[in-house]
Amino acid sequence: MTSLIRVEWLKMKKYNAFWWIMGITALSYPGINYLFYVIYSEVIQDQSKTGQLAKMLIGNPFSFPEVWHTVAYASSIFIFIPAVVVIMFITNEYSFKTHRQNIIDGWSRSQFVTSKLIDVLLITLLITGLYLGVCLVTGFANQERLIKNTWGKSQFIGLFALQTFAQLSIAFLIGFVVRKAFLALGIFFFYIIFEQFLVALLRYYDSSARFFLPMEASDRMIPVPGFLGKLDPEIYKKALDAVQQQVFIVVIYTAFIWGICYWVNRKRDLK
């Protein structure tokens, strides 16, 4: 395993596109949360009756423990940025034909897929670390008094990591099957938009089939944050209750994706 990590590190450490995209990610995740924070600040600073009512209802979603949930929800919007890196990592192997060379040099076909799994896990880890940093900085910056419940909703760390890993795995699968970087990126972005339409359509017909759509299934692990949910407590409670079921669906989907990749790579000709 350490040998696989070492090889993947050799591949990525001098890959400029990787560092550029991770840099953009490092800016965008705090950026979107800051934007949410600015909007929130403007709402609560409104001295009108509506503004004060909102302040009372919302509380401070950027203080502990609510910040874990708020930041996870806001950050998940930018999953498409690290997805670019994941797609590049696998499609590069095809365009350089190194997916063959790695096997010729002595990896098993399973080891090759494992090395890519390591890439996706590593990026997930980096993104989760970034999320953790944003949460801690935002949480402590918004601490108005001593809060004992700092880690109260820290289950969102795990949910955020799983959501990131699951959605990056979908990106990986597309790259793995399509093999061409631009085509894979196009299909991935198109699918994200297409699925949103599909979710809206299924919601309109009140069909629960939408909960099983690959991206939506993992999106629903992090429901709309409490400060928004409080406006409709019943929907919020329903969404929270569904999290466990969604985790189960996502784990099954993700295991299935990687299972397919291992199986296909073992069987097919590496051209």
Binding site: S3, R6, V7, L10, K11, K14, Y15, N16, N92, F96, K97, T98, R100, Q101, N102, I104, D105, G106, W107
Partner: peptide, 26 residues
């Protein structure tokens, strides 16, 4: 082995590419 065409990571140097060959093959 050298099969068909030289297959290397285009953004890496000759040395870095051989480091990968070395790491995989031992």
């Amino acid at each position: 082995s050298l099969l068909e065409t030289p297959n290397f990571y285009t953004y890496l140097s000759g040395t870095d590419n051989l480091k990968i060959t070395q790491a995989i093959s031992g």
